Simulated assay, not measured.
Amino acid sequence: MSLRLAIAAAALALTLGACSRAGELDPAGGIRVARSACPAAGVPAYTGDVTLFDPPQSRDARAIDVTATITNLRLTCDDTAEGPEVAATVTFDVLARRRDATAPRQVVLPYFVTVMRGGNVVYSKRVSRVAIDFAAGQDRAQTSAQGSATITRSAATLPENVRAQILKKRKAGREDAAVDPMSEPGVRSAVARASFELLVGFQLTPDQLQYNATR
């Protein structure tokens, strides 16, 4: 599985989840739309942890040198602020463990911050690095990192005609009363295009990604 496919799979799950919440029936006969211009946040499958080996080409458990995991993902975003863009920041912790705790050591790991649109389109991507410092005699270490992204507000806003179609009141007995507007391809497509996800994970090599996916 490629890193792009892993990201797309996780993002699609987030998008479909958002769509189901947006499709709740309103007591007045329309469909309740509770959505935000802020992105959902998550860690794509197989990218939330990394394993370093020594020697690098080995995959023996006895050769595991350092392991690290992304956890405590937190999103900060305010879609009520004025302006043409919506700013989002994600913070997270990195927990690491090493085999040899004899001397102090710093391990630097690359990670990505990707914005996905509609579950399968990369809107933006940035690669950064996080440094983990092990003290002498300590086999565990922890640090924090963050990433940020901006999304064009108009891109994350449903067109008025789509909103009107979703919010349209439906009277019992009429032909359209039993039709969920989210089942219509045009509406689902518009909701998907206006849905964004802010995804964070380790920037893995193909071998590292394969190891995570098959272990």
Rank of each mutant, 00 (worst) to 15 (best):
L5H: 14
L12G: 15
L12A: 12
T15V: 14
E24A: 15
P27W: 01
A28L: 13
I31K: 12
V33D: 13
A34T: 10
A34N: 12
R35P: 11
R35N: 14
S36D: 07
P39L: 14
A41V: 15
P44N: 09
P44L: 03
P44S: 09
G48F: 11
D49W: 15
T51L: 05
D54W: 14
S58T: 07
R62A: 14
R62P: 04
D65N: 12
V66P: 00
T69Y: 11
I70N: 03
R74Q: 11
T76L: 15
C77T: 01
D78Y: 06
D79P: 02
E82V: 12
P84F: 00
A88L: 07
T89Q: 08
T91W: 03
D93M: 06
A96C: 03
A101F: 05
Q106T: 11
Q106C: 05
L109R: 08
Y111Q: 00
F112A: 14
V113D: 02
T114E: 06
G118M: 05
V121K: 15
R129S: 12
V130D: 03
D133V: 10
F134C: 01
A135K: 06
G137F: 10
Q138T: 14
A141M: 06
T143W: 05
A145H: 04
A145G: 05
G147K: 06
S148C: 04
A149P: 05
A155W: 01
A156M: 08
T157I: 09
I166N: 04
L167T: 14
A172Y: 13
P185Q: 11
G186S: 15
G186K: 14
V187N: 01
V187H: 01
R188T: 06
A190Y: 00
V191F: 04
A192W: 11
R193S: 02
R193F: 00
V200K: 07
G201A: 07
L204E: 04
T205H: 09
Q208C: 07
L209F: 03
Q210H: 14
Q210P: 08
